[in-house]
Amino acid sequence: MSTYTASLLADVGILTLGALSVYVILATGQLSLGNAGFMAIGAYLASYLTVVAGVPLTSALVIAALCSGIIGVMIGFPALRLKGIFLAMATLGFGEMIRSLFLNLEITGGAGGFHGMAHVSVTYVWIWVGLILVLVWLMESSRAWLEMRAVADDETAANLIGLNTTMTKIGAFGMSAAVAAVSGGLFAHHHVYIEPGNFGFERSIDFVLAVILGGSTIGAGSLVGAALLVLLPEQLRALDDWRPAAFGALLIIVLLIRRQGILDRSLLRRFTFRKQAA
């Protein structure tokens, strides 16, 4: 595998985690447009821990995920008051506030950025991606997931049948924040340099885009969407000046043709079925 392919794969892995962080919240029917904020928290915290405090990377990522998860839970409580697109806009504001915060935070270099991280291999990135994908897959077949889907389908009804919708939604926020933080920590240690501009609205939207394009009804969809978002612009290089427009047009076409996303359960079943037959 060429080093170029490897680095693209690492980017796919990092984006997959970001997308999964949105997927987990989306499973409860909530949309986050600010997960780049949690990614920033993870990136800066993990980098600060490895570079300044000398903590080993894996521990730093775990600590960053925990801290970000706690912040996610704290954000989750006030966010309970909001629904739908209003929650989405509040998270958008949260993301912009975090970016603005790091722009002014001197100990992490402010606008000048932060470096000194040791480069991690694509294998290390994918061990994390694999672990979290398995975790999400296990969750998808658990009772907790059914509760999350119930909250997404009809929160009032879920409440009536005695589900703890508050816990479910806040738990989803916490987990989402933790996964986004891991994505950020890996991003920082893959690119060995971070600056606040890495974690703007565009990044949050990329996460959502990966989930929706890939398929928002199944965790593996995030992987497909992330691969598409990273690899497609590389395939469009021949278009030169019109590369972004072609990307935008393809994006619209995919949404129009497969609004449920590229991957869904029926497609997945067909694939696995064929494989068994062959």
Binding site: V208, L209, L213, G248, L251
Partner: peptide, 20 residues
Amino acid sequence: APLVTPMLSTLGFSIILQNI
């Protein structure tokens, strides 16, 4: 479709318009 889907298709148009 869910509201997020048309939101992302408008994002596609925004990319195209910037490029143009």
